[in-house]
Every structure is written in C-alpha cells, then in structure tokens.
Amino acid sequence: MSGYDTCTSGRVVVGVSGSLGSVTALRRAATEARRRETELWPVLAWEPPGGELAARRSPAPPQLVEEWQGLARERLLGVLDEVFGEAGPPGVPLHGRVVRATPGLALVETADREEDILVVGAGRRGWHRVLSGRVARYCLAHAHCPVLAVPPSPLEEALTSAHRRNIWHLPLDVRRLPC
C-alpha cells in the first residue's frame, strides 16, 4: 500500500455564470469529479444591481432580494440543464449553490478545504484579458486549495473572432471554423 488514497474527501467546486467559458469549466469540472470520484459543486455568484455598496446605501425590499436570488437559482438550473440535460446527470453527486457575493469571493469561500479543487474559466486571450480573467486571478491569489484554470475552448475563440469580424463587416471564411 502506497499510502495514497485514490478517493479523496475533497470536492470539485466550479464557477458557473452561463458564459461559454464557465460552461467549458463546468464540463471540465464534471470530468475531474468523475475521475476523482467526488462531489461536484457548481456555484453561481450574484450581487444586487449596483453591487453591495449600492445595496448598503439603499437597501432593496426583502421581496426584491428574494426575487433576485430566485432568478440566480433559475439561471444556475438552466445552465446545469443545458450542460447535463440530455446526457443526464454528471455521474457524481451534484450540489449546486447560489451565493450572494462577488464571484471570486464566493468560489474561494466555497472551496474552503485544502483537498478541494477549484475550477474556473481562464478568460479570454490577448488584449481582452486585461478586462476579463479577474475571477480566475482572484481565485489563484486567494484559494487555499489547488485551482484549475480552464482556457477557452477553440469554438469559443472562433465564435469571438467571427463576432468581431461581423461587427467590422469583414469577410468570414466559414471553412476555417472548427467543427
């Protein structure tokens, strides 16, 4: 016996927002949870419009806060259904969470065990990276567990490129798009 246990007590925690990057991260996290034979914890973070500072200055009625929480829950369920719906459940215990916090903080606080794995979308490449990737950078800097930053899928990059070309009315050769 080597002293290593193939089944850990840790969880695979993944940030979910509905973006293509988060869907790619969710699929990768499900694969990792199956490989480790552990639980999958998709987390969707939400904040009131204007952020927490605005909510402290001018608190919303409790019914409105409950509605925002419900909308966040619906969004998480929609993403999970979109990713796992037809294929069925991911094959591991699934514990979805909706957390009122910034995404980075919600993920780091959920993945609070050293044996957890935190999976995040790595964001875009190039000059867009300056504006995106804040959540991944926050998690890499503050997590107490390993962080797996999942790069964008080739399809996401191709769609972003096609969208950019469409905005600028440039010709697009569809034969060069990945299948």
Results as ranks from 00 to 15, higher is better:
residue 33 A to D: 10
residue 86 E to N: 10
residue 42 P to A: 13
residue 129 R to H: 14
residue 77 L to E: 15
residue 85 G to W: 06
residue 30 A to V: 04
residue 119 V to G: 05
residue 155 L to P: 03
residue 46 W to M: 04
residue 136 A to N: 04
residue 179 C to W: 14
residue 4 Y to R: 15
residue 102 T to I: 04
residue 174 V to M: 13
residue 154 P to Y: 05
residue 109 E to L: 10
residue 85 G to T: 00
residue 36 R to P: 06
residue 22 S to E: 03
residue 167 I to F: 14
residue 46 W to T: 03
residue 136 A to Q: 04
residue 154 P to H: 09
residue 13 V to M: 01
residue 97 R to V: 03
residue 60 A to W: 08
residue 111 A to Y: 01
residue 31 T to Q: 13
residue 90 P to I: 14
residue 6 T to Q: 10
residue 32 E to Y: 01
residue 142 H to R: 11
residue 143 A to I: 04
residue 40 L to H: 04
residue 131 L to H: 04
residue 134 R to W: 00
residue 177 L to Q: 11
residue 96 G to P: 15
residue 122 A to I: 05
residue 160 T to D: 14
residue 167 I to R: 14
residue 13 V to G: 03
residue 179 C to E: 15
residue 112 D to S: 15
residue 124 R to L: 11
residue 74 E to T: 05
residue 21 G to P: 12
residue 56 R to V: 11
residue 126 G to Y: 08
residue 84 F to W: 01
residue 27 R to T: 15
residue 55 A to H: 11
residue 132 S to C: 05
residue 59 P to T: 03
residue 175 R to C: 15
residue 58 S to G: 10
residue 60 A to V: 10
residue 121 G to V: 09
residue 145 C to H: 08
residue 166 N to E: 14
residue 48 P to A: 12
residue 29 A to K: 02
residue 74 E to M: 01
residue 135 V to N: 07
residue 49 P to R: 06
residue 10 G to L: 05
residue 124 R to T: 11
residue 23 V to Y: 03
residue 26 L to A: 03
residue 60 A to C: 06
residue 44 L to A: 00
residue 107 L to D: 02
residue 35 R to G: 05
residue 62 P to F: 03
residue 22 S to H: 02
residue 48 P to T: 10
residue 132 S to R: 14
residue 108 V to P: 09
residue 125 R to H: 14
residue 38 T to G: 03
residue 178 P to W: 07
residue 83 V to Y: 09
residue 56 R to Y: 12
residue 23 V to P: 02
residue 108 V to D: 00
residue 28 R to D: 03
residue 65 V to K: 01
residue 31 T to W: 14
residue 28 R to E: 14
residue 115 E to T: 07
residue 88 G to L: 10
residue 43 V to W: 06
residue 81 D to H: 08
residue 148 L to I: 08
residue 30 A to N: 03
residue 158 A to M: 08
residue 87 A to Y: 07
residue 11 R to K: 11
residue 2 S to G: 10
residue 131 L to G: 07
residue 63 Q to H: 08
residue 96 G to V: 11
residue 18 G to V: 07
residue 67 E to W: 09
